[in-house]
Design a protein around this nucleic acid. Sequence first.
DNA 1: CTAAATGCAAAACGTTTGCATATAG
DNA 2: CTATATGCAAACGTTTTGCATTTAG
Lengths: 149, 149
Amino acid sequence: MENRIEKIKKQLHSQSYKLTPQREATVRVLLEHEEDHLSAEDVYLLVKEKSPEIGLATVYRTLELLSELKVVDKINFGDGVSRYDLRKEGAEHFHHHLVCVECGSVQEIEEDLLGDVEETIESQWEFQVKDHRLTFHGICKQCQNNGNE
Amino acid sequence: MENRIEKIKKQLHSQSYKLTPQREATVRVLLEHEEDHLSAEDVYLLVKEKSPEIGLATVYRTLELLSELKVVDKINFGDGVSRYDLRKEGAEHFHHHLVCVECGSVQEIEEDLLGDVEETIESQWEFQVKDHRLTFHGICKQCQNNGNE
DNA sequence: CTAAATGCAAAACGTTTGCATATAG
DNA sequence: CTATATGCAAACGTTTTGCATTTAG
């Protein structure tokens, strides 16, 4: 935890950005909710619990900054809201998601399943892949079981 | 063209929706722009050319309806706008996209490259896949060449 | 004839911006 | 000390909604 913050601090400083208390508080919230997919508003409310003076605009600005630094990935599951997902340490690519159409739960998949597909894309379409977004929509294990009751 | 409209008409009627002139005009625009990724506003302006009396709200309502019927897929490439993409006839799954981060172009990939991956998801995660979204971000052939000038 | 659909304008929503003030480095 | 960041409120662009009117079936 602390060393991840240290690392982000260095990343910020290397581009003459400052690590303000607000930014640190925001990063802490993201670290404490690594598995979640928080919207800007969600982050705002959580940060506000410990740092009530923070403004929503600052949260938006911080999230955008963290996106630039590739600390965070911005995703959109189709509801009108952007969500922010912390990149795992050392992850080259964005991880995948399983979205349950029954209960709305979102499960993360860390393994990179797209190696072969990316090779195909690069050779067959001559497209130089930098990153990807892969989301499956379907029915999660739990809802499959509930359906059989 | 005409038989696709006929087919959509039947789908609508089967759920006691009506095929109004506005809806037909909207579908025609989508059919004429199968390869594009139009926003609601784009569709609105194109429909307006031939049916100037149409309202933006109607276009939104129609697109939402067509989404429900799986005639169209709603996607979001990260700019703040929803885009609407006609499903190819008989396509079980949504097709993939290559988004160029240089020029913003969007290329469609019709082939389903995810067969193996879906099997893995189903067996290993016990997640019943209904559909997917796959987008690659990178540099298109054209921009690669321009970069080497 | 009547349930469903439309057009319009107003409202709602998430997000961004301008600006005067505060602060990290 | 100064460039960078903040909070607030106002502005923005997209999407949704309420309502009186029209229309497809």
